[in-house]
Amino acid sequence: MSTTIPYDLAELNAALQESLFSGKVHFLPETGSTNTLAMQAATAGVEEGTVIFTDQQTAGRGRNGHNWHSEPGAAILVSIVLRPKILPTQSLWLSLMAGVAMHDAILRTCGIACDLRWPNDLLIERKKVCGVLTEISADAEQLRFAVIGIGVNVNQPSFPGEIAGFATSLQMETGKQWSRTELLAAMLKSLETQYRGALTTEGEQALLCRVESISSYVRGKRVHVDEAGGYDGVTDGLDARGFLRVRTAESMRTVLSGGVRES
C-alpha cells in the first residue's frame, strides 16, 4: 500500500486566487463520480468555474462505460463546470483543449512531455496516465453547460495485472511522489489559459497546431479505429473541426468518436 499525501486545501485556494476557479473548489473524500455530481450541480445552476474533486470514486466513468481505476488518494479525480456561450457544435473544442491543457500542466509540474492520443488521452511510453471525459447539456441552438472530467494517475506505486499493461502513474515513471495539490492547481490554471484562448477562430487554428505538435497519433500512425464496425489505417492529420482523418486501403475516413489504438 502507498502512503498518500492529502490535499492541502488552503494551498490550493491560495494558488487559485484571481483565477476562474477562485473560491469555487469543492473537495469530497469519496463520491460515486465527480462528473455525475458536477452534472447535477450544473443542472441546479452552479456557476462557471465550479470544481469538484475527490480522493476516491466508487463509480468513476470513462468512455463506453469503462471505469477509471481509482486507488484512494493516489489519483487526481476532478470535474469542472464551464458555461461558454457557444453553439453545441463548438463544444468539441473543449474536449481537444482539455487534453492540451493537461499535457502542459504535467510538463510544467513534473517535466514529463506526454504523448497525446487523439482526442485527449495522455500517454507515457504508450501507457495511459491521464484521461478526459467531457459531458455537455445542450439544445439545438446553445450549449447550456459542459462538465470536463479529468483523471490523472499520480501516486499509484503499481497497477493490478489486468490494467498494468496499459496504465501508468507519474510516480511509476519518475520514482517519486508528487504533490496533487500543486499539480491540480497547475491543471486548472492551464485549463483556464486554454479555455480563454480556444474559442476564437485563431484559437481553434492554434489548438489544432498544438495538438499536432504534441501528438504522435495525428499523422503517420498505424491505428485501429473502434468505430463503424472497426477498421485499420494510417492517421493523416486533423480536419478543420479537429476530427482525426485515417487513410485506409480503400478511402479516407473521419474518426468521430474516441477509440483509436496503435496497431
Binding site: 468512455r63 468539441l92 471525459l133 467531457t134 468521430l256
Partner: peptide, 30 residues
C-alpha cells in the same frame, strides 16, 4: 458522442416516441 464528449439528448417536449430514426452506433450529422 464525438471526441470523447458525451451529449445527452433530451426531449424538448412531452409525448410518445413514434420512431427512432437512426441505429445504435451509427454516425450522425449535425
Amino acid at each position: 458522442e464525438a471526441m470523447k464528449l458525451m451529449n445527452e439528448i433530451e426531449a424538448d417536449l412531452g409525448g410518445e416516441i413514434v420512431k427512432r430514426l437512426v441505429n445504435n452506433g451509427q454516425p450522425v450529422e449535425y
